[in-house]
Amino acid sequence: MQWDPGGATESKSKFYIYLRFLRIEQTFFSLPMAYMGAFVAIKKIPPIYILVLIFLSLFFLRTAGMTNDNLADREIDAKNPRTRSRPLVTGKISVKEAKIMIILSLIGFFVSAYFVNFYALILSPLVALVVMSYPYMKRYTAFANYQIATVQGLAVFSGAVASLGLYASSFSQLIIGIPWLFVISTIFWAVGFDLYNHIPDSEFDRQMGLHSFAVLLGNKALKFAGVNQILSVVLAFAGDYFYQLGYIGYSATVLHGLIMAYAYYLANKGDFGRAFYYNIYSSVVLGIGVILAVILH
Rank of each mutant, 00 (worst) to 15 (best):
A144K: 09
F39M: 02
I42P: 00
T83Q: 08
A78M: 04
P32N: 04
V111G: 03
V127F: 14
A142T: 14
L19V: 08
V116H: 08
A38V: 04
V151A: 14
F28L: 14
S124L: 09
A64H: 07
F118H: 11
V52Q: 03
R82F: 05
S11L: 05
G7D: 11
E10K: 12
P87T: 05
L154C: 11
A34T: 04
I122N: 10
V116S: 04
T150K: 14
F15Y: 11
R82Y: 11
A38R: 03
S105M: 02
G7H: 04
I102R: 07
M137A: 15
R82K: 11
I24H: 03
F118L: 11
V131C: 02
N145W: 11
F29K: 10
M66T: 14
V95A: 12
L121E: 11
D69G: 05
K14C: 02
S11W: 02
Y134P: 00
P46F: 12
Q152P: 00
S112W: 01
A120S: 15
V131D: 00
Y140P: 00
K14R: 14
R23S: 11
S94I: 05
I100Y: 15
I17W: 06
L71K: 07
K12E: 08
L126H: 05
L129H: 09
F60Q: 02
V40R: 12
A142Q: 15
P135T: 10
D69C: 03
R74V: 10
L104E: 12
I93L: 15
V40E: 08
I100A: 12
P81L: 02
N80W: 10
M137F: 14
Y119R: 03
F143I: 08
I45K: 03
K138G: 08
T9P: 03
I93E: 13
A144W: 08
V116W: 09
S85T: 04
I122A: 15
V111L: 14
A8W: 04
I50D: 01
F39H: 00
A144L: 08
K12C: 05
K44H: 04
V40Q: 09
S11P: 01
Y18N: 06
V111A: 11
E25Y: 13
G108K: 06
I48D: 07
R74L: 02
T63S: 15
I103Y: 14
L71I: 09
M36V: 03
P32I: 06
I76V: 09
L58T: 12
L88A: 11
R62L: 10
D73T: 10
S112E: 00
L22H: 12
A78E: 10
I50A: 06
L61K: 06
T27H: 10
K43P: 01
D69P: 01
K92G: 02
K44N: 06
G37Q: 10
L19H: 06
Y136Q: 09
L56A: 13
P46T: 07
V130R: 07
L31Y: 06
I24V: 15
D77H: 08
Q26W: 12
V131F: 15
S85P: 01
I103D: 07
I148D: 00
P47W: 07
I100K: 13
E75M: 02
I17N: 09
Y134I: 08
D77Q: 02
V131T: 14
I103H: 04
I48K: 07
V131Q: 04
T67C: 08
G108M: 07
L53M: 15
G65S: 13
Y140D: 01
